[in-house]
Design a protein around this nucleic acid. Structure first.
Length: 156
DNA sequence: GCCAACGTTGGC
DNA sequence: GCCAACGTTGGC
């Protein structure tokens, strides 16, 4: 049997909504509330065992704060059917749900945030998508070399 | 299919 | 609050 290669990703969350501390306390979580097709499609490409950098957005300072791992996928996002949720989608239906997501588990919380400013000094544009000016994608792939560089930096 | 108008994200 | 960089919507 051929072993599937581990891929690396980055997922953003606003710490006011859900932070690395929340994930540390919860242990695992489903990454629900994604309402962008490109981001959803990246989640569909993920495999169990993939490593995911946790990025805090819309805060001071924005940056990478921890690491998680994909433990399940193709999970129907329940918030799309919840009329009280801000993620309720009237165009979705239970026969063919529009939004699905992955389940992740907490791996580690970094001692120090790797800020966007520091990320910009480590990566030229396009090498790590999050440093691109005006980038709005909440989920992006990370190249293996970039992931290794990030992990090395976070150990120090 | 085109494209203008509008909405959202998120750094600053 | 500003604005760049998209994504989405809807008229035609």
């Amino acid at each position: 049997m051929e072993q599937k290669e581990t891929s690396y990703w980055l997922m953003k969350s606003e710490p006011d909504a859900y932070s690395i501390k929340n994930l540390e306390a919860d242990g695992t979580t489903i990454w629900d509330g994604i309402r962008n097709y490109q981001a959803r499609n990246f989640m569909r490409k993920m495999n169990i065992g993939d490593q995911v950098f946790f990025y805090h957005s819309n805060c001071k300072p924005p940056g990478i704060v921890g690491l998680m791992e994909v433990i399940d996928k193709n999970i129907t996002d329940p918030t799309q059917f919840d009329q009280n949720s801000k993620y309720f989608d009237p165009k979705s239906n239970r026969d063919s749900p529009r939004w699905d997501c992955v389940k992740v588990k907490f791996i580690s919380k970094f001692k120090k945030i790797l800020s966007l400013q520091e990320l910009r000094s480590l990566f030229i544009e396009d090498d790590l998508i999050v440093v691109k000016k005006g980038n709005r994608l909440s989920i992006t792939p990370v190249k293996e070399e970039s992931a290794k560089l990030l992990i090395d930096n976070l150990k120090n």
